[in-house]
Design a protein around this nucleic acid. Structure first.
Ligand SMILES: [Zn+2]
Ligand SMILES: [Zn+2]
Ligand SMILES: [Zn+2]
Ligand SMILES: [Zn+2]
Lengths: 666, 666
DNA sequence: TAATCAGGTCACTAGGTCAC
DNA sequence: GTGACCTAGTGACCTGATTA
């Protein structure tokens, strides 16, 4: 369904609500509705009323319109950010990542079951394991690949968080805006969530898995988007209230409030688990990662495994905050702080937006990258990876080595963030990267460094797109897909063979390979999603994987990637490139922020207006709330329903029909 | 009558009372009164007094206010639930489906006469026959088309059931609330309830027919809502009492009581027939198709044929259930064929357009096709279907072949979904599909799995939007519609023609073509409904089917839908393309419709303005678009940002955006 | 050129209002 | 209490841009 439908979705499901994704929007795979919602809401926080359930609403298709606060939160958690967007085709890598992720997710899901408890740590292992089993790829088991991607390190939750959450580096800002942070934190989610598991599916967050591809970045980079939300999350806490209030003001306030509350809930998820810092971090997973990561070695390795790279946020955050520090606990704190800062920044944005400033900031950030010789390198790198992957797959041996790299120190990358603190950062991973790279160095460097290294390796692995064999998924696709050419395996092949990586492809992929693939995936996803919602998130480590980062990495997640990269870095270039992209993004971000600011204004106006008029209207937004009231009971009812649905839900779909479109119209 | 009135109703009648539906509310097509009633009652169960007639009151326009308990029960039976609501536009597919359904219904009606006894099986054949007569389409008789669509399998009732009943996955909750659960369970329905059948109309649920469009889902998928209530029902049982009681408490209780009784009725629908799977499947036809389809080539073809696609549910369901089972015989085949033809036709309409059009049309859309190799294939496929349809219609021969392709294999498509049971899946077909495929695995996997697979196949069929010639209806529309460009007739033309799918469109469609159609339909519907109420329902198994099964299953719904979708989806893409093209056209159409809309808009605006003025908004943006309004500011902001960024530029993207925006807005 | 997405447009519905 | 009417919001679809 979903996927297929949407060509561009690559079989992904909406990380937010679980519907079939229409594409990668604002840093995450989402459906049209969530895309629009996010776009609309980003600017009008004021329109969002507080959650009646303490921000604990689980978002799924059916109830996604029931609680805007939680929906938005979820959006942020999964890494959506204005900055995260990108245009144009996606690189094969990216696609591959997506595939892998899915696989991973699946695997993860499986794992989660096992792991759940485990939370972050185990992941890597599990991931691998699962991966293997799942895909059963030749080469390295797909799983492995997946694992490589992000999975490893990531915990499911983390995963989610990362990707989901972090994907794109959404901006903390955003999070902050929302107040999500907490949420984010929760996002962390998974961690917590899953851990907390209050929710249904630990997995839940699963979605994250989906998210994985962060790709925000352009293909090239896989960006990890480390930045991700996390930071925000942190921020969120503090930030929220403020931020929101600021701009939107009243409504905002409320919004803020809501958000906050929302967060809370989220937080709860996560939070619970998380302690302070981490705590801050939304994602437990992340947190965990970090935390886990914290330890020097552990850290990185995992990371890269994680692919974490992927998670810029984490990284970022970590970096910023943590890194500098030592990482560890403190780190975390730091991170948190950083995050906070970021959040604050974000909020600003929101609020304020300093926009200009920010913009500038960003710009700056970006600039950095540019240069980058890297770019080239990045690309090369990518190819290496890809090739490696291909080879590996074919050959099987993982390419870990390939990456030569460098390192670019993630730290650098990371560091930058802080800057961002700003929200901007987010914008892009790129920025981050740049920043990080540049800046960064600072903080995290240390920490990360070590990690990075690992990561790099990991990355390499990850990268792997190669996986010698395409990951199961890929393979499947390939197999199934007619399109594919014969693969050469090698690098080139990749391309060639190309499986159809086309995102959309539903056709191809779906149709052909995809289908199968998708199928599998989807299944997972769904499950996951559900899971996610519930909480599962954490585990999704996979996501992390993939996210591949590597692939994508570059870009995106750059951060993450970077981190990973660092090494890669050498890759940096590439990264840079990606970064650049990111930067671009960043701009966006800025803009975004700005927008927000603006929006807020607007919104306000609007709302106001509306309100005025309708008074009723006001309600509108609020309405929902109102409804809620009644609904309270209703809510209860809903909940029930949901539960029911839960199962049901699916129902979902129901009808959807829509889709089609026939367009009809004409 | 009914339908026409309400633009958004798409000729549907209120499933609860038989009046012309005002739109799809809370999971079913209902009139304003029933919508409001349900909304009010949902929260205040206490306000509902017990039925004096043991819950056996038959609800119709005249007496609908006489017994709240029975009215509410009926609402639940027809699948209304808070969770069942959907927002936004209906996908073209959906619209198409509606059209087809109508035709089918008509056909069905005819057939029923014949078949009645037959129940599910015969349909196909009959359908065709009737169809022909009804529309008298060139190509395949409309009826055929209808048949093709869902008819085949579907029985009228079934039809309803599918949609109606299952529609959206209402929520179990609701059911539960009502006490329906049982019903739900029955939902499962059919099975039980009917068995229990204490209730009134077995048929009752008839409404289902209406429901059909489930659309809940987003457009994309048609989701069939499989999930539907049923699941709930299950739950319900236990749940109900509790649940209901819980909230509403006293009243609830009573309500429950009533409800319960009610349930009985519903269940009957589906369930009965459906056994789990197939049985479940409402539509025999579909089932058949799928089944038939199943075979490789067939597969696709059918799908498109299906187009019936429309019913994803069917497909899905069938597949799952039925297909596996066996098709019957010929009928199925026939049906399929017919369906196919119909579908084709329809698609035609829509699509029709093939190529050229598409290309053009869509350009955008088209893109896909364009090249695509892969995609292309998909697209192609879709187009093929479409074209086929068109041709078929025109030519009559179904295009089965067309699809070359691929196949995308439905399976592929389909497969995926399962996922999760998730409700989500639905999202769309795709989602569903994916999910199913994947997900499924999980839950249902077992059960569903089989189904899923089937579904996929089915899906394919579904897709079909292609139907060569647009179904009668479509054609009509086209004809009537001025907008259309000259068609080329064939495919291309079709697109152009875009039929207006707009629900409301009453305007276009209705007014023109629609009317006729609608009229007919309505007629049918009315009849049917009545029938249903009385009891006829049982047979309607169809309903059950669909919904059923899949639906129910949790996800099912989704699944179902998905299933259908799947295919569709797959197709969708193409379809989309075509559609898009069409859409474009459609747009026009829409626009036309729009007028209507405008009205609305105007109103709104006005209102708004009045209110506050939103007007303000307008200002903002300048935006033309309403949306814009707010955004306007945003855009501005963005622009600013950009400026700021200056650097940003890089971002390009954004910039662009901005630029764009600016431009645009500006 | 193809793929892919931000954004905009507008069909369409939940919910609120208020005359009956 | 009912249901026609209105509006905010949702999301399907399209447009145009960006990137590979
Ligand atoms: Zn969504
Ligand atoms: Zn909430
Ligand atoms: Zn009614
Ligand atoms: Zn009664």
């Amino acid at each position: 369904m979903m996927n297929q439908d949407n060509p561009y979705a690559m079989n992904q499901t909406c990380k937010v609500c679980g519907e079939p994704a229409a594409g990668f929007h604002f840093g995450a795979f989402t459906c049209e509705g969530c895309k629009s919602f996010f776009g609309r809401s980003y600017n009008n926080l004021s329109s969002i009323s507080d959650c009646k359930n303490n921000g604990e609403c689980i978002i799924n298709k059916k109830n996604r319109t029931a609680c805007k606060a939680c929906r938005l939160k979820k959006c942020l958690m999964v890494g959506m950010s204005k900055s995260g967007s990108r245009y144009g085709r996606r690189s094969n890598w990216f696609k591959i990542h997506c595939l892998l992720q899915e696989q991973q997710q699946q695997a993860v899901a499986a794992m989660q079951a096992h792991q759940q408890a485990a939370g972050g740590g185990g992941l890597g292992g599990a991931g691998g394991g699962s991966g293997g089993s799942v895909n059963g790829l030749k080469v390295p088991p797909p799983a492995a690949a997946a694992a490589a991607l992000g999975m490893l390190g990531h915990v499911p939750g983390g995963y989610a968080g990362l990707y989901g959450a972090g994907p794109p580096g959404r901006s903390k800002e955003e999070l902050m805006m929302l107040g999500l942070e907490s949420a984010v934190a929760s996002g962390e989610y998974g961690g917590v969530v899953s851990g907390g598991g209050s929710l249904k599916h630990p997995v839940v967050v699963a979605s994250p898995s989906v998210s994985s591809p962060d790709s925000h970045n352009s293909d090239s980079s896989v960006e990890v988007s480390v930045s991700r939300v996390n930071p925000l999350l942190h921020l969120g806490g503090s930030g929220n209230g403020n931020g929101n209030g600021a701009k939107t003001v009243s409504s905002s306030s409320s919004s803020s409030a809501e958000i906050v509350s929302t967060r809370a809930s989220p937080a709860p998820h996560l939070r619970k688990d998380l302690p302070p810092f981490l705590p801050g971090l939304p994602f437990p997973g992340l947190a965990s990662l970090p935390t886990m990561m914290a330890p020097p070695p552990p850290f990185l390795p995992p990371s890269h495994l994680l692919f974490s790279g992927y998670h810029p946020a984490l990284y970022t955050h970590s970096h910023q905050g943590l890194l500098p520090t030592a990482a560890t606990p403190e780190q975390q704190q730091q991170q948190q702080q950083a995050a906070v800062a970021a959040a604050a920044a974000v909020q600003h944005l929101f609020n304020s937006s300093n926009a200009a400033q920010r913009s500038n900031l960003n710009n700056n950030h970006i600039h950095l990258l540019p240069n980058g010789s890297k770019n080239p390198s990045d690309e090369l790198t990518k190819r290496f990876y890809l090739d490696a992957v291909l080879k590996s797959q074919q050959q099987s041996p993982p390419p870990s080595t390939k990456l030569p790299k460098q390192d670019y120190s993630i730290s650098a990358l990371v560091t930058p963030n802080s800057e961002s603190g700003s929200r901007e950062r987010i914008r892009s991973r790129e920025d981050l990267e740049d920043n990080e790279m540049n800046g960064l160095a600072n903080k995290d460097a240390a920490i990360e460094d070590s990690e990075d290294d690992d990561e790099e390796d990991l990355v390499v692995s990850m990268t792997p797109p190669h996986s010698p064999h395409p990951p199961a998924v890929l393979q499947q696709q390939q197999q199934q897909q007619p399109h594919n050419q014969p693969q050469d395996d090698d690098e080139e092949d990749h391309q060639d063979n190309p499986i159809d990586l086309s995102m959309k492809t539903s056709a191809s992929c779906r149709s052909s390979a995809a289908s199968s693939c998708s199928t599998n995936h989807e299944k997972h996803e769904d499950d996951e999603e559900e899971m996610e919602e519930e909480g599962g998130g954490a585990e999704h480590k996979l996501t992390p994987h993939a996210r591949d980062d590597d692939v994508d990495d570059h870009d995106d997640d750059d951060d993450v990637e970077e981190l990973q990269h660092h090494q890669d870095e050498g890759e940096d270039k590439e990264k840079e490139l990606s970064v650049k992209e990111e930067l671009s993004d960043a701009k966006d971000i800025d803009k975004v922020n700005i927008e927000q600011s603006n929006n807020n204004n607007n919104n306000n106006s609007i709302n106001s207006n509306n309100n005025n008029s309708n008074s009723n209207n006001n309600n509108n937004s609020s309405n929902p709330g109102d409804n809620n009231k009644e609904e309270a009971s209703d809510s209860i009812k809903r909940k029930l329903d949901d539960l029911v649905d839960g199962t049901k839900e699916e129902n979902g779909k129901r009808l959807r029909l829509d889709a089609l479109d026939l367009t009809t119209k004409i």
